[in-house]
């Protein structure tokens, strides 16, 4: 019994952290820049392909492959930002945003299928992370701990960036009152572009470290997008603690359900979503709009 509870807890936390790491970029785009970026999953997937290619074809080591994946995805997204996303920051109608970003997603899926084929691409983790880790009272896969550490580091770093740096102050100012920020001489377009890059980079990072749980293949871009959107809407768009809480709660609901009643599939995940959204219509820690 104790063992089952522990197993569920550990799996729930690591799954929750993967959800968080990928979804937080989406949450920032939605909460701060008011863009519903349905292509966020596609960017996470691109990160995964980059890492897989970097390790298996180029022989790079795992940490370096993560860096390549994040930077590579940002580079690929940059022209999309300049040509397309810039038009839909803060103000474009929701329908425009959805049509544009779902279009981008389909294009990326098509290209991924064409370039890499329909099969799953693995991202081999280094020996250091692939073995078991002795917690003292039981063994767990080291990679799980790594994923948890990545999630917590991301949350802390992002919180510091937004709440404690000059960039964060300018970003919040631009989000609050763009005209006044411009009048003070803040280049809001530059701030938005950098925020977009950060959001996409986080997606790519999450795509790589979460590839064990969410394998990289062309339909990844759509398959998990609903889950990411659910995390954002349950947590409240733009809220880091909200996304963290939502990821862990949903991770727990999903894992518990799959352990104890596997025949129900995703039932418990969506039951938790319905209950939370019913109790907190703005999300757990959403900014009132």
């Amino acid at each position: 019994m104790m063992n089952t509870v522990l197993s569920i807890g550990l799996d729930a936390v690591s799954y929750g952290m993967v959800l968080f790491t990928i979804s937080i970029g989406l949450s920032i785009m939605m909460g701060l820049m008011r863009v519903v970026n349905l292509a966020h999953g596609a960017f996470a997937m691109i990160g995964g392909y980059f890492a897989s290619y970097a390790i298996k074809q180029l022989g790079l080591n795992y940490p370096f492959a993560i860096v390549v994946a994040v930077l590579g995805t940002i580079v690929i997204s940059a022209p999309l930002e300049m040509l397309l996303y810039r038009r839909i920051y803060r103000g474009a109608g929701e329908l425009t945003q959805l049509l544009l970003t779902i279009g981008v997603t389909f294009v990326i899926i098509g290209l991924a299928n064409y370039v890499f084929g329909p099969t799953t691409k693995s991202i081999p983790v280094p020996a250091m992370l692939s073995g078991p880790f002795d917690l003292g009272f039981r063994m767990i896969p080291t990679h799980r701990l790594f994923v948890v550490a990545c999630g917590l580091t991301t949350a802390l770093a992002l919180w510091l960036l937004i709440e404690r740096t000059d960039f964060g102050v300018r970003l919040r100012a631009a989000v609050d009152n763009g005209d006044m920020a411009e009048a003070l001489g803040i280049r809001t377009q530059v701030i938005y572009s950098m925020t977009f890059a950060i959001a996409v980079g986080l997606g790519a990072f999450g795509g790589v470290v979460g590839a064990e749980l969410m394998p990289i293949e062309p339909s990844y871009a759509l398959r998990y997008m609903v889950t990411f959107l659910v995390v954002v809407s349950v947590g409240g768009a733009g809220s880091i603690p909200g996304a963290l809480a939502a990821s862990l709660l949903l991770g727990l609901a999903d894992t518990t359900g799959k352990y104890l009643a596997p025949e129900f599939g995703e039932f418990f995940f969506y039951l938790a979503v319905i209950v939370i959204v019913f109790l907190f219509p703005n999300g757990l820690l959403g900014r009132a709009q």
Partner: peptide, 24 residues
């Protein structure tokens, strides 16, 4: 209308100081 509501009092003033000094 010119206040930044997502910022603290100190951040509002600090931002204006930084922008004026060109610390962009």
């Amino acid at each position: 209308t010119r206040l930044f509501t997502g910022l603290t009092v100190a951040e509002n003033v600090a931002l204006a100081v930084m922008q004026r000094r060109g610390m962009t």
